[in-house]
Design a protein around this nucleic acid. Structure first.
Lengths: 243, 243
DNA sequence: GTCTATACAAAGATAGAC
DNA sequence: GTCTATCTTTGTATAGAC
């Protein structure tokens, strides 16, 4: 269930347009407009007329560039996924040669968040329309999606082999949890409350180490009971004692 | 970005109908049908005719029970939220008197997951249609939503005061992260892969303690560098050394 | 490449019989 | 309470001028 603050859309980072950025070709204008509208109004209730309006053309003109709504949807899905995948690959690639798995995992997390939040229209659109587009559009988008899933499974598999990852559940489950936790912030992230770097560090901390500080009075980090009580601070012990 | 396995819907637990469950009143049939269709096909593309069909009546008859699509949406939102809130309150209430915050937090997490997965049509519908229903429907649903947010903020606030919660970010951010991570499983949970109890324990473990086993070679659990290397297993050290 | 005009289907909602 | 019938609007998509 949702428990966000406001009903309004989160304020998202926008990609910084370089100096003298050339006006996008019409086809791209259509995709940009479609992504924004898909994200904010949903797939079915976004009309081609509205997309055309936002792109500065008339509805009929869309059909010169796309076969129809389905193809637009598939392209938006691809663009959103590719933006995130590219950011992840970039961040991993920027690490020093021979960086450990945990560092690469951290880079991937940051890259995913960066891509999600800096291309929010496309990535939010992806998350929100994926299950509602036609089968044809989903099929067309399949390969891009599979490749990204594989990227994570490979990385997480390495982490598991290295003993970095918790081993009390399948890697696929960890991936599902992880991606889910990383996708949600596009709904509520607000860049006015701090830098992206700080935000990413905070999310990474929660993903990697959880929201509870180590003290294990209920359930141990990884089913290895015993070493708990010693680490509990006196303040905590007091609080628990009071009830 | 999404990286689920299949494009198909996750298989969700259904509430167990007791023996001799009376046939639901027509109004409830409509809500049940609407929730399922909203969750699977989205809000805009679910037609009143389809809802009526699934409820075994004709489209015109819906207007005897509801003002229109908006009111149906608001009722589905309320029902989904209340199912989860009730489950959370029940699990917390079932604890022994004087249970510590961490135990109550764990009960809340399990309750949220239980409600989400045992009333999947309503809860998935909630998550997926919330931002697309009319302002009127959202306003009407507002109080229920606020109450649930408050429930979590109170609980997390207590945990923070007790030193159980990580303190390097605002409680509201932890709540957003937490709820997001707990909402996503409705997209991919598959009861055929294990009991709900096991699943809940696994998710709780990741939410509480993260996906990385404590070894802190990159970022410490809560910005307290130093005590790291000593805890690293030899297997991990070897893996990191290889690169 | 983009426009106008329009065909055709399907939506939410209402009226009134039963 | 539920039905049938229908009004009105709006959607995707196409045709052909410019």
């Amino acid at each position: 269930m949702s428990a966000h603050g406001a009903a309004s859309d989160a304020v998202a980072l926008q990609p910084v347009a370089g100096p003298a950025a050339p006006a996008p070709a019409t086809r791209d204008q259509i995709l940009i407009a479609a992504a924004r509208l898909f994200a904010h109004q949903g797939y079915a209730s976004t009309t081609l007329r509205a997309i055309a309006d936002a792109a500065g053309i008339k509805a009929g003109s869309i059909y010169y560039h796309f076969e129809g709504k389905d193809e637009i949807a598939a392209c938006v899905l691809d663009a959103g996924m590719e933006a995130v995948a590219a950011a992840v690959r970039d961040r991993i690639g920027a690490l020093v040669q021979g960086a450990g798995v945990q560092r690469r995992l951290g880079a991937a997390v940051e890259g995913h968040l960066w891509g999600m939040l800096h291309h929010a229209d496309f990535t939010a659109a992806h998350i929100r329309i994926y299950r509602y587009v036609s089968d044809a559009a989903r099929r067309r988008h399949g390969p891009a999606r599979s490749a990204y899933t594989r990227l994570w499974d490979d990385l997480l598999g390495e982490a598991a082999a290295a003993g970095t990852l918790r081993s009390d559940m399948p890697v696929s489950m960890i991936r599902q949890y992880l991606i889910g936790a990383l996708n949600w912030p596009v709904d509520w992230y607000d860049p006015r409350r701090g830098s992206f770097e700080q935000f990413a560090a905070q999310i990474t901390a929660m993903v990697f180490h959880g929201i509870v500080v180590a003290q294990d009075d209920a359930a141990p980090p990884q089913s290895a009971p015993g070493r708990a009580a010693a680490r509990r601070s006196s303040a905590t012990r007091r609080a628990e004692a009071v009830r």
